[in-house]
């Protein structure tokens, strides 16, 4: 299944994360900007990839602006963005 349209979820407030997802043709691309990139960068990317796997997304351009969100928040926001991006235009 794939992303049909650009969608976003979350906010730039502290403890939250802003997720943007766009359709693309060549696999998963993740662009990450985080206040805790050095300490949690890998864990954040893994959480994003896991949610894309679970939701069966094979191609997507994902941009993450993280304001120190916990993993359960990051997962929720990515899932919401996927849900919104899948809706028919």
């Amino acid at each position: 299944m794939n992303i049909k349209k650009c969608a976003s979820a979350g906010t730039m407030e502290s403890s939250d994360v802003y997720v943007e997802i766009k359709p693309c043709d060549d696999g998963i691309k993740i662009e990450l900007e985080s206040v805790v990139e050095k300490q949690f960068g890998e864990q954040i990317k893994k959480a994003v990839t896991d949610v894309l796997d679970e939701t069966g997304i094979e191609n997507a351009d994902v941009r993450i602006v993280d304001r120190g969100a916990l993993e359960c928040v990051i997962r929720a926001r990515v899932e919401t963005a996927v849900l919104r991006g899948r809706e028919e235009i």
């Binding site: 979820a9 979350g10 916990l70 993993e71 359960c72 928040v73 997962r75 929720a76 926001r77 899932e79 919401t80 849900l83 919104r84």
Partner: peptide, 15 residues
């Protein structure tokens, strides 16, 4: 509403 549903679900599941 969609975002909150998923966020609350994850909060209940993981916290």
């Amino acid at each position: 509403k969609d975002a909150a549903r998923i966020l609350v679900r994850n909060t209940m599941r993981y916290m």
